[in-house]
Design a protein around this nucleic acid. Sequence first.
RNA 1: GUGGCUAUAGUUCAACGGUAGAACAGCGGGUUGUGGUCCCGUUAGCCUGGGUUCAACUCCCAGUAGCCACCCCA
Length: 493
Amino acid sequence: MLKKKAIISQKSNKTAERKTGKAVKKIRRAKKNIATVTGMRDILPQDQKYWEKVRQVAKQISIDYGYDRIDTPVLELTELFVRGVGAQTDIVEKEMFSFTDQGGDNLVLRPEFTAAAVRAYIQHGMLNQIQPVKFFYLGPLFRHEKPQSGRYRQFFQFGFEAIGEENPALDAQLILMGWNSLNDLGIESVIQVNSIGCMSCREEYKKVLVKYYKAKAKLLCESCKTRLTKNPLRLLDCKESGCQELKDDAPQILDYLDDNCKEHFMKVVGYLDELDLPYVLNPYIVRGLDYYNRTIFEYWAIDDVEGKNALGGGGRYDGLVTMLGGREDTPACGLAMGLDRIVAKMREKNIEVPDKRVDVFVAQLGDAAKKKAMLMYENLRPNGSFTIAQAFHKDSLKKQLELANKMKVKFTLIIGQKEVGEGTIMLRDMQGGVQEVIDFNKIEKELKKRLEKYREGAVIDLTADEEEKESSTEIPEEDVADLGDLGDDLAAV
RNA sequence: GUGGCUAUAGUUCAACGGUAGAACAGCGGGUUGUGGUCCCGUUAGCCUGGGUUCAACUCCCAGUAGCCACCCCA
């Protein structure tokens, strides 16, 4: 009995030990465990070059075609999207980050841009400006979906909206702009184009479509059965094989367009032909936002045959301005491109984006030199023709050169006690390790001269002229060997 | 919302029912004012909760997260 007790107490002691151990770990981890919210991610410094490249291209396209930047708030009234995007859409029904704020307003993190752009157009009376009003935007969007590849809860889009004009040339040009964006980034894509007509021809078509599918309702998958009443156009989207087969014989919207819509679409397609764009008439793309009518389109990467990860899309939304309380009959057209997916595609395709280059590193040694270097840095910083870096928080020259090396700078300026006294500075060519002492006042001029040589791709002149040679410091033996290698390398090129 | 796979150091990956290893990265050295290569040292980790067991990072269950697919979309 006693023995048993002893064992029990031993065991419970151990358990207690384990528990306290776990508790300690838990406390330690509690600090560490704060991480990004589901579906959100950090864009880290090493990835920024891709994003920056996409932003650059987007901005350039906006300039080329005369679209002006607009930034709208991340937070909008929920009602804007309920009315704009449509209460029945997935986005509004289940994907919005919405909440009631302290003042009792129903707010939402914007799930898309178009409604906000139109809101701004109406709110600021832009119908009094030259039509169409052309917007360019770029920023984060939020949808509460289950994350997976190419889909995040915070994602980025850039896009263009042209409000107040119905001419089909505009549709075609927007399609072109999206394609150009991808093309300029080195991504091959195919444009999928369709027209879903205006409200009246679409209603007509829906009737025919429902009639066709109702006769075959037994063969439909479960979700398609609900689509039949809820959103019949979606029937064409279904990936189930049974529904796919039915789709092939289903009536096509293009046959039910009225004369105006047909003519409008024919013109759009005519421009696309003229521009020689790689497009496919795809009667099955539908798009999930209620405000679209007439021309709709998507961009699929050339290897994405099923369009699982469309890189962008858009279309005409002639009714949206009115729907949101603007003037009647204000036609509009726009497109949006997904930054996240574009960046992913660039990486998948190994599309090179050059690293940010730093040309010159400023190294210092000793307190007096550090002060002088800091001042010099401020003088060189705005020079406009080369970029510089420093690590004034380091005292060791070895460390500073290590950093300079990692940054792959062309030259390092070294200033120490001796140089401060002499009014000189040491200029080290990082590739060969050659060092020269130059006049402190000629730094900028010398650097410009030398960097220009580098940029021209000229072979570095190893036999500097007499004057410079004399002021050169002695080159250590290993460095001489390096120079030999370098010479060979250059000769090989 | 449904299903599949996964969860070990900052990163990429090992191992094991009985004290968790490597590589890369980081930091510090290999004499005081010189980087790359090399050598040495060092920091740092088992997603959370429960169960089985003398003992769980390992086996089981649940949760959470990630990836993937469906749905939908960019």
